[in-house]
Simulated scan of single mutants.
Amino acid sequence: MVELSPCAPAGGADACALPTSPARPGSRISLFLDFDGTLVELAEAPDRVVVGRPLPGLLSRLDDALEGRIALLTGRGADMVAALLGDISFPIAGSHGAELRIAGDLVSPPRPPQLDEALAAMQRFAANRPGLLVESKPLGVALHYRQRPQDEEACIDLAKALAAPLGLHVQTGKMVAELRAAGADKGSALRALMDRDEMRGSCPLFLGDDATDEPGFLAAADLGGAGVLVGPARATAARYRLDSVAAVHAWLEGLAGA
């Protein structure tokens, strides 16, 4: 059995129980999962992630075990994650909560034209810096410096310099500086999904690894649930922690009743 390590003292008497099986008392949970760094290992480039063969089947079994109370919250485009995982019917909130994909239908706001200006500026910046990767997303543009960690400060400074004049939001994460449309995050997505019939009144658990997941941790806690940090201990709003992607898979197997 994989145990969840506490990140901080547990909440009060109304705090959510953290089950290893949905059949246990008090375990009517809704499960929210980040993708990169939580369900799959981080890779040098977004298109190099490896989705293990068992993962789609595990998510399908969780969907059944939790009676539809499962969703993915990701910074990637929702359609991209769906393509990586195959035919799944449960919700994917993509682009840090700005998109929602359910059963193949995608609801997304228009792409701000300012993102094209940001994309061009980041491409110019990266042109003479081998190893920097510019990623265009449906509602964002990201500058990855995993292969050039010495450029971290410069990448973040560029994103901040572009954000104000273009009316975009700066989103930093693990070895990435991103500009995206404002108005949504993983916390707002979790709150919206918790208002769906199948999730309303349940206890939300959100598993994530990055600073981009902190709004989701806060929203889960505010709704009577908890965040679960994946990876090394750090300052976080999550109440619990799992050591690694492998530990996440093992814990999810227990939740699915394996």
Rank of each mutant, 00 (worst) to 15 (best):
A120F: 02
D116Y: 08
P113R: 00
M80Q: 15
R124T: 11
A78E: 07
H96C: 01
A93K: 03
R129G: 02
G97R: 04
G94C: 10
D105P: 00
Q123T: 11
L106H: 12
A93W: 03
F125A: 02
M122H: 08
S108Q: 12
S108P: 09
A118S: 04
M122G: 07
L119K: 05
S95T: 02
L85T: 06
G86I: 03
T74K: 03
A126C: 09
L115S: 08
S95M: 05
G97I: 09
M122K: 04
S89W: 14
A82P: 08
V81W: 05
L119G: 01
D105V: 15
G104W: 03
H96T: 10
R111C: 11
D79A: 15
L119W: 12
L106Q: 08
E99A: 01
P112M: 11
R129M: 01
E117N: 02
P109T: 12
A93P: 01
V81Q: 06
G94R: 07
P113G: 06
L115G: 01
A98S: 15
L100T: 07
D79N: 13
P110H: 03
P109G: 11
P110R: 00
F125V: 00
N128T: 15
A83M: 10
S108V: 12
A126S: 13
L100F: 00
L106G: 10
L115E: 02
P109Q: 14
A103Y: 00
A82R: 15
G94W: 04
R111S: 05
G104C: 10
V107I: 09
S108L: 01
R111T: 13
E99M: 03
A98I: 03
R129I: 07
A120P: 04
F125Y: 13
R101M: 14
F125R: 00
V81N: 04
F125E: 00
D87L: 04
A83K: 14
P112R: 10
I88R: 13
S108F: 01
Q114V: 00
Q123C: 10
I88Q: 11
I102H: 14
S95D: 04
A82V: 04
P112V: 10
P109K: 12
A78K: 03
S108H: 04
R101H: 08
A82M: 06
P112L: 04
A118Q: 07
P109R: 12
P113E: 12
I92A: 07
P91Y: 11
Q123S: 12
E99Q: 09
A121I: 06
G94N: 09
A98Y: 10
A120I: 02
D116T: 09
V81T: 08
P112Q: 13
I102C: 11
A127V: 01
E117G: 00
P91I: 08
G94Q: 05
A103F: 03
A121C: 04
M122Q: 12
G75C: 07
D87S: 12
A78V: 01
A78L: 08
H96A: 06
S89Y: 05
L115V: 00
A98L: 15
P113I: 01
N128C: 14
D79W: 07
I88K: 04
P91C: 12
M122S: 07
A126F: 12
R111D: 01
R111F: 04
M122D: 09
D79C: 13
G104H: 09
I92D: 02
D116I: 04
